[in-house]
Design a protein around this nucleic acid. Structure first.
Lengths: 190, 190
DNA sequence: TATTCATCTGACCGATCGGTCAGGGTCTGA
DNA sequence: TCAGACCCTGACCGATCGGTCAGATGAATA
């Protein structure tokens, strides 16, 4: 059982990606990852401080770019913020589909941990921007539906090529974010 | 009849609802529920065969109505199916917001269990109906974004009154499902 | 009074979890 | 040749999980 190759670390990362995507973060044990790599659980914990360190390393690039998008949004309001947020988020979601799939369904729980508190704030600002910085319920609803729906859709369609997924999402986002006249009545119809 | 206090069962259900909604199904232990009720873990398991039985009982009404919606969709195609699916699903999602919140984020894992296999099929049919029974990527994307987004939004906005949430979601769904002119550059389906 | 029966419990079980630790190989540079 | 850094491991730990079980309690019934 000699494996004097330092590439073990990379293999662990790859295996963790596969297992997290298949059975979720909580649904994957360190032993699962070790078995897939063909090493011992202790080896996994030799290369990574703990289970969470594995996840944060896998998510790091996505988080960095998410913060960049957040920075790009500062100062923007109204339609400009809306458009930048929509295009930026669709782009991120499509490119980091795999990362989204990793934490699929565990986003709320993971956000509760203090390490990810700033991501919580970013997603709130993103939602506000998508809503055109309005408090109107309809706008907030549309923004949240888009954010959650796009994330889930990207995670589901991991195999669809970017060139197909991105324009479909962008077109949908534009339709969903069309400025709607504030008619308090016309809603009652079923 | 015999006993004047079979209300323990109801208390357990209520406590389970609260805990599942707060920390998720997997994130809630039987001991958590027992502690909240003020009884022993064994008492919880006296009233319910196992942890899953608790969840299925809590979800039963929602599942029943979901199946009814699925039945109502059989035979419908195109725009008719689309409209029925959209209105029906928005209505269900709004009314069963609490139930959605219970399994929030654990939907994919729970669906993997054989007991919920038929729900998997129902949600696939629902997605097809929302897509207007089309294979077009754009339509499938829009359908999935709506399904996932509406679910998450309802779970998030548990406190928003129905009268406010429902019309906002319906209006958004109509906008998102508007028939889009089939650009000459379509037809890149999987 | 004796019996039955639903309700409830503490003690316990095996499994699994994330994580620690002492130590054993292997390679490298002095 | 040897010291030490690096890589890896089995054994082990405490905690927690869902679940079982024999028995205590007490009210209704016969």
């Amino acid at each position: 059982m000699r494996r004097a190759e330092p590439e073990t670390r990379g293999e662990i990362l790859a295996a963790a990606t596969r297992r997290f995507a298949a059975t979720g973060y909580r649904g994957t044990s360190l032993q699962d990852i070790a078995t897939e790599v063909g090493c011992s659980k202790a080896t996994v914990l030799y290369h990574f401080a703990n289970k969470e360190a594995l996840l944060t390393e896998l998510m790091a690039p996505a988080i960095t770019e998410l913060q960049a998008l957040d920075d790009a949004l500062t100062g923007l309001t109204g339609r400009a913020a809306q458009q930048t947020a929509a295009e930026g988020f669709v782009d991120l979601a499509v490119r980091f589909r795999r990362e989204i799939a990793l934490i699929r369904g565990e986003f709320p729980e993971l956000l509760r941990q203090p390490e990810f508190a700033h991501i919580q704030r970013i997603s709130e600002r993103l939602r506000d921007a998508l809503a055109g910085n309005t408090d109107r319920a309809a706008a907030q609803v549309a923004a949240l539906v888009l954010l959650a729906g796009i994330s889930e859709t990207c995670a589901e369609f991991v195999d669809v090529p970017d060139a197909e997924l991105r324009p479909a999402l962008l077109a949908l986002a534009r339709r969903a974010l069309e400025p709607v006249p504030e008619h308090p009545t016309q809603d009652k119809e079923t």
